[in-house]
């Protein structure tokens, strides 16, 4: 009876699948959604050039990627993880505990975090980091006291700014972009405040008190989808958006970057670090997997090649801000030789 046959084969299939240890011939990559497009580009180029099976690239976020990456050694664990910040000591610890002892760190370039606004907005926006902090932080100094953020209009922060309501769309706390924004813009802006400078507060105090974004309306968490933020900015000419520079770069006809301390976000200003809100992008590779997983070494060579990483390479065309030449050469040598990273501080 066909019915019985189908049932039996279904059970057989389940049994087989349960016992199959995934013998894989493709590279597996997890990690940051910011590094994802660059890794995708390298993976596709690599597969086209060599005819090898294309690596499987999964966007899990930096933190999620580290958890999976540090899960252990072996075919069921990924070979590479992308990160939009350096590995944290706790993650390094986790890796060590699970036997992932030899990891190479590769800094592939920089990504600018841009504040953008619709081109329909006529004002030439130029904010200082302190103004950004005052507009978006949960707690700010009010009359010499550290209190909940009272500002609702931009001109309350600086009379030169237009009298429009503060409204900014940004990434949620699970995003590496958010971590980077808090660290690079909010902490730096907080440190610039006269209240903090005169009060003699140290870095720990800043980390503790200046990390929270306000939750009373002006800052809206718009989810991980940056295209959605772009659409919302088009719909509301007075809203600001916070996202990676590559999204601004692709949408320059609709959006303009908000200058920070008089500097416009662009490939040049991010590369020479004059634009203050830029972050390094990394990938991490398990040295124990090299030579075991087929093609892993060749893939790393492709990632480290001048074609990919140089300032006129194909990753730059996607918005990655390349490293200076001497730094790139040092990096290529270290990564290709499999120099293991030491514990981060």
């Amino acid at each position: 009876m066909t019915f019985t046959k189908v049932s039996v084969s279904a059970l057989a299939l389940m049994a087989v699948s349960a016992t199959t240890a995934a013998a894989r011939d493709e590279i597996r990559i997890v990690g940051s959604s910011t590094v994802f497009p660059y890794t995708q580009a390298v993976a596709e180029q690599f597969s086209n050039n060599t005819g090898a099976p294309s690596p499987i690239v999964e966007s899990t976020g930096t933190g999620g990627g580290m958890q999976i990456f540090c899960g252990g050694i072996g075919e069921s664990h990924p070979d590479i993880t992308g990160a939009s910040r350096a590995m944290k000591p706790s993650e390094f610890e986790l890796c060590q505990q699970n036997g992932v002892t030899e990891v190479s760190e590769a800094l592939i370039g920089f990504d600018g975090l841009s504040l953008a606004i619709s081109r329909a907005n006529d004002f030439a926006w130029d904010l200082s980091l302190a103004e950004i902090y005052l507009a978006l932080a949960a707690q700010v100094p009010v009359d010499g006291e550290w209190a909940d953020n009272p500002y609702t209009m931009w001109n309350e922060i600086n009379p030169d700014l237009p009298a429009v309501e503060i409204l900014a769309y940004g990434p949620p706390p699970t995003s590496g972009t958010r971590d980077a924004f808090v660290e690079l813009a909010m902490h730096a802006g907080c440190e610039d405040l006269p209240f903090v400078q005169d009060g003699g507060f140290d870095g720990d105090w800043v980390g503790e008190n200046c990390s929270r974004m306000r939750t009373d309306g002006p800052f809206v968490e718009a989810g991980e989808n940056d295209n959605l933020i772009v659409q919302r900015l088009e719909a509301d000419a007075n809203a600001l958006g916070i996202f990676g520079y590559s999204f601004l770069y692709e949408n320059l006809d609709k959006l303009k970057g908000v200058m920070i301390d008089g500097i416009d976000p662009s490939i040049e200003t991010i590369a020479d670090k004059s634009y203050p809100v830029s972050r390094p992008l990394y990938f991490y590779v398990k040295n124990a997997h090299r030579g075991v997983i087929p093609n892993l070494n060749e893939f790393i060579e492709e990632y480290m090649s001048d074609d990919a990483l140089a300032s006129d390479g194909y990753l730059s065309e996607r918005g990655l801000v390349a490293l200076a030449e001497d730094r790139r050469e040092a990096l290529q040598e270290a990564v290709l030789n499999g120099t293991a990273m030491t514990a981060p501080e």
Binding site: S17, T20, A22, F36, Q40, A43, E44, S47, P53, S54, I56, V57, E58, S59
Partner: peptide, 13 residues
């Protein structure tokens, strides 16, 4: 199953 994969799967594995 939201990974970036440039080839079609040839088996369910």
């Amino acid at each position: 199953m939201n990974a970036f994969i440039t080839s079609a799967a040839s088996s369910p594995f």
